[in-house]
């Protein structure tokens, strides 16, 4: 005998808004999960419908990473908080040299948030996860009172496996190694900033948000001795290089002329007084590799659609003080320091 499904009014994706009941654990929450999240993220693991996803054991070492996303505005040229939350966490796993396998997603929704916006975000996440081949297998939803959130916050966690023989770590950079960058800097941060309320300016700048695991796989497959991979997100290229220099106990010398940057990004940074070295990226990576393999690795990167503008931007040096220095376009020398304070609030 089958149970007759009782009628429930469909979610109003046009004019509806999140109410407290959608996080209360009752029928409303169940409906939100089934009709929105499960429908969009559909995959066999999520469809198990249990408290956790039961996953097949993978071979190799596990990599796990988590990231919370609080970007404002939620929608920007080239993306939104949804695809960003998928790409960002996949990239964190990929930077370990791992193949990302599964994602989880937790949502904190603010009472009054429009269903239409939530659906747009969830659909964008679903597409990003599908395109990347990494299913969202479990999740959670909470609702907070109006004024206690900012529309939606999303936390994602990714699990991946790294095959034997690959060890990437921020402490492996050695003097003499070359520093490679996969493309232009500052696109994501300036795309978000250009659309922020109170600061909006017209600029043809599009976020670079993208999942980079395919590029990483190509780089690993070429057999170059890669030491470190890292995606220069918050704090930009400068912060990422300083992190690596500190972890590895080395210095670096960059060449300003070799760092690629899109002209609209450069112009926008110029008139806002920002240094593009500190502006966030969401679809770029920094690779540190042995000098003898650097040219070959650069060729592999440039052959990949996500790193056509890859460049060799400097080298690792011995330096007890761990300074990241740069030869400027003017021919002088400067430090590229850690970011002090915050250059921009909430961009990822």
């Amino acid at each position: 005998m089958s149970i007759t499904k009782s009628y429930s009014r469909p979610l109003d994706f046009k004019n509806g808004r999140i109410e407290m009941s959608y996080g209360a654990g009752g029928r409303a929450m169940a409906q939100l999960i089934t009709d929105l999240f499960a429908a969009a993220f559909d995959n066999p693991y999520l469809a198990q419908g249990n408290d956790g996803a039961l996953l097949p054991m993978a071979t190799g070492r596990l990599v796990m990473s988590t990231d919370s996303h609080v970007v404002s505005p939620l929608f920007f040229a080239g993306g939104d908080i949804g695809c960003l939350s998928v790409h960002g966490t996949i990239n964190d796993v990929a930077m370990m040299g791992a193949q990302p396998l599964y994602l989880s997603a937790a949502f904190i929704l603010e009472e009054g948030f429009r269903f239409a916006d939530l659906k747009r975000i969830v659909d964008s996440m679903a597409k990003a996860a599908f395109d990347a081949g990494v299913p969202i297998v479990t999740g959670d939803t909470k609702v907070v009172e109006q004024g206690k959130g900012d529309g939606v916050f999303i936390t994602t966690t990714a699990v991946g496996v790294v095959r034997d023989g690959i060890t990437l770590s921020g402490d492996r950079a050695q003097p003499g190694d070359k520093i490679l960058l996969s493309g232009t800097i500052g696109d994501h941060g300036m795309a978000v900033l250009s659309q922020r309320e109170g600061l909006s300016f017209d600029a043809p700048i599009v976020s670079d948000t993208a999942a980079l695991h395919a590029l990483v796989a190509a780089m690993l497959d070429c057999g170059a001795s890669l030491r470190v991979l890292r995606d220069p997100t918050r704090g930009g290229l400068a912060t990422t290089l300083n992190e690596i220099a500190k972890q590895s106990g080395v210095g670096m010398l960059l060449n300003e002329s070799s760092i690629p940057i899109n002209q609209p990004v450069e112009a926008a940074c110029e008139f806002l007084g920002l240094d593009p070295l500190y502006v966030a990226n969401e679809g770029k990576l920094v690779a540190i590799c042995a000098a003898e393999d650097a040219e070959r690795l650069l060729d592999v990167m440039r052959a990949h659609p996500q790193a056509k503008e890859a460049a060799m931007i400097g080298e690792v040096r011995e330096d007890a003080h761990g300074f990241v220095q740069m030869t400027t376009k003017m021919g002088g020398r400067r430090i590229v320091d850690w970011l002090a304070g915050e250059q921009l609030p909430r961009i990822c």
Binding site: T327, T328, K329, M330, G331, G332, R333, R334
Partner: peptide, 9 residues
């Protein structure tokens, strides 16, 4: 002066 390292010139 500092950002462009002009002291070196």
């Amino acid at each position: 002066i500092s950002r462009y390292g002009l002291a070196d010139l």
